[in-house]
Simulated assay, not measured.
Amino acid sequence: MENTTRTPLPMATTGCACCAPTPDTTSAAGQEVAGAAGTPAGASTYRVEGMTCGHCVASVMEEVSALDGVTAVDVDLVANGVTTVTATGPVSSNTVRSAIKEAGYTPTD
């Protein structure tokens, strides 16, 4: 067996909204992305900053998936960048934004 050095996975940073909330009220996070490429019919995509780990993704997916009318949720995580959350189904954008807030994020218009 080879003796190799393993690099540990990075831990959640203080900017992780699910592990250590640090709301940023000055950013444009949480804005709906109109006509995002590859978005299925009946889907809306939202921009969210501050998601850094799988736990962040799971928190948002759990809240948005629980909404009446949501048939699918897709999260494209960009750690320390702008993550996109796509909700498919007949649900209002205000309802999705509220669910994102419930998960620990503050979407802005």
Rank of each mutant, 00 (worst) to 15 (best):
C19G: 15
V33N: 12
E2N: 10
A29N: 09
A12N: 11
E102S: 06
S98Y: 06
T22C: 08
R47T: 13
G69R: 11
T52K: 13
T86C: 08
A66S: 08
R47A: 11
Q31E: 10
V57C: 13
T7K: 15
A12H: 06
N80R: 09
S92R: 10
T108P: 11
S27M: 02
P90T: 13
A87H: 05
V48D: 07
V57H: 11
C16H: 15
V33H: 14
C56L: 05
A99M: 07
S44K: 12
S59A: 10
S92H: 06
D76Q: 01
C16R: 13
A79V: 04
A103G: 01
G30C: 08
M61H: 03
V33P: 14
S65M: 15
Y105K: 00
N3R: 14
A99L: 04
A66I: 03
V48F: 02
G35R: 07
Y46G: 07
M11V: 14
N94H: 14
G50F: 03
A41T: 04
C16G: 11
T86Q: 02
V33K: 14
P90L: 05
V73N: 08
L77M: 13
T83W: 04
G104M: 00
P8M: 12
T84W: 02
S65I: 05
V75W: 04
C53V: 15
A20I: 12
V73W: 15
A43R: 11
A37V: 13
N80C: 06
A66Q: 01
E2K: 12
G35P: 07
S98K: 09
V85G: 02
G54F: 12
A17E: 02
Y105S: 00
E32R: 04
A20M: 09
Y105E: 01
T83A: 08
V64K: 00
V82H: 12
A34C: 15
P23N: 04
C19M: 10
T108C: 03
C16F: 12
P21A: 12
N80Y: 06
E102N: 10
A28S: 07
C19K: 10
P90I: 02
R97W: 01
N3V: 12
E2S: 15
T88H: 15
A20G: 07
T95C: 01
G81R: 03
P10G: 13
G54P: 04
E62L: 04
T108H: 00
T25I: 12
Y105W: 03
T13W: 13
G50D: 06
G69S: 11
R6G: 12
A99Y: 00
V64C: 00
S44E: 12
G42K: 14
G69A: 09
P21G: 15
T95M: 02
V78T: 09
G81L: 01
V73S: 14
T26V: 05
A41G: 00
T52I: 14
R6Q: 15
V91K: 06
S65Q: 14
V57R: 12
L9H: 14
T86P: 06
V85F: 03
C18M: 10
E49R: 11
A17R: 03
V64F: 00
A17T: 06
A58P: 03
A58M: 07
M11F: 14
